[in-house]
Design a protein around this nucleic acid. Structure first.
Lengths: 336, 336
DNA sequence: TCAAACAACTAAACCGATTTAGTTAATACT
DNA sequence: AGTATTAACTAAATCGGTTTAGTTGTTTGA
């Protein structure tokens, strides 16, 4: 490949490596116009491109960051990655993507791999299963920015959606349509603040509209086992809800497939508002109304924060909140 | 960050750098058990991790490949990237993603950036606008593997779907349902073999079933301007088709949105089979039948091919075809 | 007029590994 | 007994840059 190196340029321009290097790095102090011109010509003639590896070795950095996500294939995730990537390229950085498929062990291995690669920093949507490990890396001096998931005790270098407001808005949206029995479908939210925040948003919307909280309407869903109680059984219970509010795209689609197999229809029989936007929603049998996050912006901001951290350790240890917005489609019915 | 280096290990183990290096690289020839043990202990004690930058500088490689795609956010593309990434990680490589957003200039810049970064190789779904440039890089010694798009004259290091067979199968699927007037909606396929192949598949299915080719049923679509003739006008023409066969996900969805605004319904009024799979298809008003590619496999195979090329320039200059399959859903009606 | 300041460079050390070419001491061979 | 071989190491060169500490010749200042 490119074999021409700095010495070659220096030789051709009849200067020393040092001078050539100075030129390349734009430090023209005390360098004659003539010398500059000769070096410029030599570079052009030889089609010289500095070797970033050698450069990085000396500078002790990689101009590379790591991004740990669950699955790049996810709709929101892919947009977050775009945000990260676009911002990175803007600043001369590159991003290395690591997929964990929701496995904390893979997450730990990714962290270690990125550490060994000496990336300049890491953006992670962590599973919560590696909090100590992550702290260790931070203590070793690795800049790390979290997004999406907030775990108790971590208030720094964090960027997330305003989950509480989002859940509040979604719930209120349903309430305004006349719904009082709103089933909140969630993953376990102990220790996961960003899930708990949604719960708080839901609760406070109910409160503000003087609707009593019915614990039977809090329903749980797990990634591996699905619904704790099937949606059908929920709808047949005596506290049957008139609407579902699902806290994650995977929950929304799981609910959708289950209802698809029954005669129950949306929004005639139940309304549904989801968290996270849905690809191709316009073509759905019933386009689903959602509170959507801004994954692209989150990616961009996370990267911005991380690069601030990298370039100035003192700075950038904030917690940033991005607003969500209800996107009205056709899955919520007005009721009396 | 990690400041401990090989000398530190060597010192602690009371050996020379050379010996320590040998140990790390698993060359234990002529090294006493005792020495090995001391080095192992020192590494553990100091928590030493070799600096890959220094290593790569010496080895003149990066253990990194570049991937140039249009948009990582696309459904198929994101899966291809997963395939690339998964295979890369398997072999100790990392992948750097560059998005071009269908812009040949961005593509050219990405190529240059990756070249300057000295990636070990590049996987590209090229726009076709940079063929000479790509040849230049190949001649400079950069291993490059193409996927998705095949341009005339490039038969090497190529991996793509069996477009011709796929289009044949899709067309035949419609014919078997009784369709004779099948509208083939395509992008301009001059000079783009992988598009022309679809056309040939379509034509040969018609031929094989003794259906005359009606040029009016070949319709064009452009990425910026959309349909040359609107689907509605096509359906109102005297040669009105009973089915559409769209050659790309973007065409499929464009068609879908246009029909959505009319009373025309699928499959009652027209049938539709698309190229490329569709996310969340099961929730569609009418789940669309498609011939789907295998983007994940393509990513994996492309990477395999590229790594073969990297490690053995002589090998791996093949053209690989991956089969597609018709996924039957509900957008095609049986007609008399 | 002579030292201080400065312009315009360069030699050599350095970044953190790998690798080549030795070195030394013990063993094997004739 | 003297050379050849081998085991077990090490010093130094190398990868391709950047940076520090000089060097040399010309101006400037008192």
């Amino acid at each position: 490949m490119a074999k021409v190196k700095l010495v070659d340029v220096a030789q051709l321009a009849s200067v020393s490596k040092s001078t050539a290097s100075q030129f390349i790095n734009g430090r023209y102090d005390y360098m004659s116009k003539d010398t500059q011109e000769r070096i410029r010509a030599a570079i052009k003639e030889l089609d010289y491109v500095p070797n970033p590896i050698a450069r990085n070795l000396k500078a002790d950095r990689t101009k590379t960051i790591g991004v740990i996500v669950r699955d790049i294939t996810g709709f929101d995730t892919s947009h977050t990655i775009r945000g990260v990537d676009d911002f990175c390229k803007t600043c001369g950085y590159n991003a290395l993507i690591y997929n964990t498929d929701f496995d904390p062990d893979v997450e730990a291995k990714s962290l270690e791999a990125l550490y060994q690669l000496r990336v300049d920093g890491i953006i992670i949507a962590s599973s919560g299963g590696n909090n100590k490990l992550i702290s260790d890396y931070i203590n070793k001096g690795m800049p790390i920015v979290h997004f999406q998931l907030e775990h108790d005790g971590n208030e720094k270098n964090l960027i997330l959606s305003d989950y509480r407001q989002a859940a509040f808005d979604a719930t209120e949206y349903l309430i305004r349509l006349g719904h009082k029995k709103i089933c909140f479908v969630t993953q376990d939210f102990k220790n996961v603040k960003s899930r708990n925040d949604r719960y708080l948003g839901y609760v406070s919307a109910l409160e503000q509209h003087n609707i009593a909280l019915d614990k039977n309407l809090i329903q749980y869903w797990h990634r591996e086992t699905g619904f704790e109680h099937s949606p059908i059984s929920i709808l047949q219970s005596k506290a049957a809800p008139s609407a579902f509010f699902t806290q994650h795209l995977a929950i929304t689609t799981d609910l959708l497939s289950q209802l698809n197999q029954t005669k129950i229809s949306i929004p005639e029989d139940v309304s549904l508002i989801g968290f996270d936007d849905i690809p191709m929603a316009e073509f759905f049998k019933v386009p689903i109304t959602v509170v959507k996050q801004e994954p692209y912006i989150i990616g961009k901001e996370a990267t911005k924060l991380l690069l601030e951290n990298i370039n100035d350790k003192a700075k950038g240890s904030q917690k940033l909140m991005i607003a969500c917005s209800v996107t009205e489609r056709q899955s919520c019915k007005k009721i009396l």
